[in-house]
Amino acid sequence: MKKAIFLIFSMTLCFSCSEDDKAIDTVVEEIERGAILRNIDRISPNFLRTDVQSAFTVVLEEQDLEEGGIFDFVRLYLQYKDRTPENGDLSASEIMLKDIPNTDFQTGSNGLPVGTVEVVYQEAIEAFSLDAGAIQAGDQFELRMEIHLTDGRTFSTENGSASIFTDACFFKSPYRYVINVIDTIPADLFTGVYNYEIVGDQTPSPTSGVDNQGIVTITTGPTSNVRRTSLIAEGLEFTIAGEMVYPKIYQSLNLFCRNSAFHALTGPDEQNFGLIDLTDDTVFELDLVLGYEGWGGTGNFDTPQTIKLRFSKQ
């Protein structure tokens, strides 16, 4: 199981957070305190393939030991993942996209800096000198954020813990966001009551809380093409992009927010993606990683485990 390098929870700490709590006061490290970018609102998580002015937009609250007093700027990094390489693989490694200064953040209701981070689709295309016509629904951009403090320290994905990354817990600071390129589908598609079963050779650990089969209701999510179901403790969320199904990264499998050592997360498989027939929503498959990126929780998943779920409409 991964261990947080800078940001970890005290193993004996138990607390109940409200919106007015200064959450950073509960984030501890043996020597120094860290910083987080708390997700206040995911306004628009994906790019619309046919609209280069569509944007990824999220509202964030910066928290540090000095309640924003040592916040300098946020650096954005971007990567392109060509998930439809039939016309040639155009995938591109991570680049530095831009910096957002602390002056773009305003004091929010908690007395902490709050700002809107936005990446326009056209901006992402130009950053990699891509041909917009070659990008297909199902392709992805990956945005990573790095906090820079005035004392020279930086914090990003390598500095967190399971209970910091997931939106299921108070901190909601994944530092990393997957931006799917989508074509909008009708809101009623892939919703309703479904029977699910785990197919293939992989059987989840009994401690995972995921049964081999069952009945779930799939509902629309907060934005286009997003669907939700109660399959895991947080409520499994996935996005339909082209003919592929992408589970949201860093979702909580067991909601052990108070103790990162036992907190397990889920996410997408980087090699296999469930396929969907956009003309028929009666059956589809989804690949889900338990113990995503090593966040398996003590005794649950020594290594990440991928399970394939088949959903059949009732």
Rank of each mutant, 00 (worst) to 15 (best):
S312K: 10
T223W: 05
E32L: 08
S10F: 08
T282W: 10
Y177T: 01
V283T: 13
E293V: 06
E118L: 06
L278K: 08
G291Y: 05
D82G: 08
R310D: 03
I100V: 11
E285Q: 06
T266K: 06
E66C: 14
P85D: 01
A127P: 01
N39K: 15
E126C: 07
C169Q: 01
K22A: 02
F262V: 11
I232Y: 00
T50G: 12
R144I: 03
T306H: 09
V27N: 06
G291R: 01
E293Y: 11
A134N: 14
A55Y: 02
D151V: 02
E30Y: 15
T150S: 09
P45R: 00
H148V: 04
D188F: 15
Y194D: 00
L78A: 07
T220Y: 10
F56Y: 05
L143N: 07
I8V: 13
E146Y: 11
G291S: 02
Y80R: 06
L278I: 11
M1Q: 10
A35S: 01
G294I: 00
A187R: 12
Q314I: 15
L76M: 10
Q251Y: 00
V114P: 13
F15P: 07
S93R: 15
L112R: 08
L265N: 06
P222Y: 12
R153V: 05
R228K: 12
T217V: 02
S129A: 14
G297C: 05
Y196E: 01
I40L: 13
T220G: 12
V27A: 01
I40Y: 03
A168S: 15
I147D: 05
S93F: 13
L236P: 14
Y292V: 01
D25H: 12
D280E: 02
P186L: 00
E19F: 11
K172A: 03
E32Y: 14
K308I: 02
L48T: 13
T84Q: 15
A127D: 01
V117E: 08
T306R: 00
D201K: 07
M244T: 13
F73A: 03
Y250K: 01
E94P: 08
L286E: 11
N159D: 14
R33C: 00
I125C: 07
K3D: 09
A168F: 13
E30W: 12
E243R: 12
G192L: 05
E126Y: 12
I135P: 04
I147V: 07
N195S: 11
G68K: 09
